[in-house]
Computed example of a mutant assay.
Amino acid sequence: MPKSRFTNIICKSYNKTFGEFETCKLNVLGRGVIGVQLHLKLYIVPINTVSSNLSVLRRYNGFKPFMYNTTLDFCKFAKQSKKLSFEKLVLDAIATKSNLNHTCPYTHDIIVNNLVFNDNFLQSLPLPQGEYKIQMLFGSDNIWRVQVDIVILREE
């Protein structure tokens, strides 16, 4: 049975007047259980338009593009997404432990509280063992504002 866990997180704010990360870390919640703790303090609200870019990279002598890179209108996607897709898998996983469980506008800080990687998240998208980076860029008003990189180690 595969066992996966978060091993690193890096958060960047490209525009400190828009928002800053108050918290961006991994917490040890138990033996081999690692949770993501993230708090993005937003200074310009409401946010009515959100663009997102989701990329998956795999480590082969440095991280290289692997299988997936897409950009979408996050507000529209959150409102209308019913079909199974990689974006939906990621959004559903994050929504279980965050306040990103509604559509636009966003009038509050973004908080992710102890999100644990669960192999069930990827049931329909099996990945071979290895080290992966999920890179998420978020923007508003056609300007990239923040980036979150999460590294996952997938072992058999």
Rank of each mutant, 00 (worst) to 15 (best):
P2I: 15
K3P: 01
R5H: 05
F6W: 02
I10N: 14
C11E: 06
K12M: 15
F18G: 03
E22R: 10
T23S: 13
K25F: 14
N27C: 10
V28H: 09
L29M: 13
G32M: 08
V33R: 10
I34H: 09
I34T: 08
G35D: 01
G35A: 09
V36G: 00
L40Y: 04
K41Q: 03
K41A: 08
L42Y: 06
V45M: 08
P46I: 05
N48G: 12
T49F: 07
T49M: 06
N53G: 07
N53I: 10
L57A: 12
F63W: 04
K64M: 05
F66K: 14
M67G: 04
M67T: 04
Y68M: 14
T70S: 15
L72G: 03
F77R: 04
S81T: 05
S81R: 02
K83I: 15
L91P: 00
D92I: 04
D92V: 04
A93F: 01
A95I: 00
T96M: 07
T96R: 01
L100R: 03
T103F: 12
P105K: 04
T107M: 10
V112K: 00
N113H: 05
N114V: 08
F117C: 10
N118W: 01
N120K: 11
L122I: 15
L125G: 02
P126C: 06
P128M: 14
Q129H: 11
L137K: 05
F138C: 13
F138Y: 09
G139W: 04
S140Q: 07
N142P: 00
N142T: 04
Q147E: 13
V148N: 03
V151S: 12
V151K: 03
I152Q: 04
E156N: 06
